[in-house]
Design a protein around this nucleic acid. Structure first.
Lengths: 311, 311
DNA sequence: CTCTCTTGTCGGCCTTTCCGACAATTGAG
DNA sequence: CTCAATTGTCGGAAAGGCCGACAAGAGAG
């Protein structure tokens, strides 16, 4: 499973392209297609295709996430998709009979792109499906998939054991207040950050970590206080304010093989305000969602399904 | 002169490439070749090829700078180049007779690239010369050029009249202290910045200006105090610290036709510490400087001369 | 010269941010 | 339970940074 997923995404990045959907949402393909040009000191946006990025995506998505496998045949349920879209849409419910669609559509998974919303760092996937009308009559056993992203193998998709050094901490009031910095759990700091010289009185270093968009964040990591503990000071408050973090949200750090750091966020589940808070909701909502599928079936072409693993 | 130079640089950017010399120095070609991919919120590095960039370069270089014209024939003086290189080199002087070079080498100017050092924003040029052995005997009148960058037309190279809205201010102690912001000369603000609504008590706006590397800097521009004056507050101190500015250095702003702002710096001449403080010094210094020219003469191929207009 | 306009520097004050003190909490045994 | 390790929150202090006051300096007439 892990290997397959990695392959799938590597393919995506090789044939990188950017469609209209990328207008507001930052997508991996766009960013990784930016060349290796030397970038300015306070900017950087070119996540590599290393496995640590995939791991970061999965960790941000939550460990329970599983994804459809590229190349597999899945079943797309228009009704299910419509209901899901309706739940986050401001428009009144629509009648599925408007579209001349069968209740189940067999599709091959052509592509699975791991993406992240540029506005709020929400992770999501774009699944590219190609209808397979010749399979319309077969038995469902084994190869089925719900409309949105339940993998055949159940919950086996998170790359737990290939992420040796990572931690995730729910932010406290002190972490998010402007009064101080971020208190790093001891184990976390020792696992993920370069070691400090504990013989010094207040050993410190600069950490640089990239988020899902390839943006670099810099933090001063210091070991001080009585009792002594690990803290992130300078740079932390900027990160909190730019990402709009509040206590209850979580931040996570990953250390790659080469020692490079990645960081991501996982927001606390907040009461829904009824308005779609991400581009995903809009892309999946009326009147597009089913007409696109219907058109794909009619023309035997591909269509896209967006999927937010966390909802 | 201006038109020729513009053409020259446009050519450079069309056929953008990045050679090994760009390792530490940010060059225009590298940056402008980065595609139009959507960039992250706190990053941007893609200077366009508009004339305002050329103007910024010239203003940073100082108005007295003149440059060789692309397509012209110039005379390269190895001895002069060697002496110039020696003045900023830590190595002991060399004897020019080591190289089997004539005292004057007629060359055609194949290219003139306007570049900026990524580390310290120092402007410089890379002049590409092609030896013209068939001209070795002709008279010098009219078409001569010293080894490093004296144009045939003397000092006519700075685009003064095509830079309608710009200012340059030498920074005061107050401008560079952490205690406050930057006091903008009144004429300068009125010339270069969008007008404020003077009826308000403390009118303000956000200014965004790009430097030579295409990096965006944001400043709060406010008109306040008694007597009232223009100030840059938020964002200014970060600029000062990132650029390592001290009182005596100068900052300059340019407003383009479309209202877009550019800014550059011109450092005060500080006592030389003997060590070359830029990659240029190294590139021009022993043992490369003349052997590259000698090799070009022998193989009838091109060679490069780097030139810092301000020294 | 005088008068006005411009702008450099300063004190005041508020916010941000760094620091250790201390205590609440956690976890091992 | 007891004890030690960990870490959340706080007061204090230093630094950053916004404000107008004031006056030095520049320039016009």
């Amino acid at each position: 499973m892990e290997i397959d997923l990695n392959h799938a995404v590597t393919e995506v990045e090789k044939h990188a392209f950017c469609n209209g959907d990328c207008d507001k949402a930052s997508c991996v393909c766009c960013l990784s297609s930016s060349s290796s040009s030397s970038s300015a000191s306070n900017s950087s946006a070119s996540p590599d295709s290393s496995s640590i990025y995939l791991e970061l995506w999965h960790v941000c998505a939550g460990r329970l996430t599983s994804l459809p496998k590229k190349g597999n045949v899945v079943v797309y349920f228009p009704q299910g998709h419509l209901e899901q879209a309706a739940s986050s849409s401001p428009f009144p419910p629509m009648d599925i009979s408007t579209f001349d669609l069968p209740p189940q559509i067999f599709c091959r998974v052509v592509n699975v792109q791991l993406l992240a919303n540029k506005e709020n760092d929400e992770v999501y996937t774009q699944v590219t499906l190609l209808p397979q009308p010749e399979l319309a009559g077969i038995n469902l056993e084994g190869k089925e998939l719900e409309g949105l992203g339940v993998d055949e193998e159940g919950g086996g998709g998170s790359p737990t054991k290939s992420t040796p050094h990572m931690f995730c901490k729910t932010l406290t009031a002190s972490d998010t207040s402007t009064h101080g910095g971020f208190s790093v759990p001891r184990r976390a700091a020792e696992d993920c950050f370069p070691p400090l010289d504990y013989k010094q009185q207040r050993p410190s270093q600069e950490l640089v970590a990239k988020d899902l968009h390839g943006v670099e964040w810099r933090f001063r990591h210091i070991y001080r206080g009585q009792p002594r503990r690990h803290l992130l000071t300078t740079g932390w408050s900027i990160f909190v304010s730019q990402k709009n973090l509040v206590s209850g949200d979580a931040v996570l750090f990953l250390r790659g093989e080469g020692g490079e750091l990645r960081l991501g966020i996982r927001r606390a589940v907040r009461p829904r305000n009824g308005l779609p808070d991400s581009i995903i909701g809009n892309q999946n909502s009326y009147p597009n969602v089913l007409s696109l599928a219907a058109n794909a079936v009619a023309t035997k072409s591909m269509f896209h399904v967006f999927y937010s693993p966390r909802y």
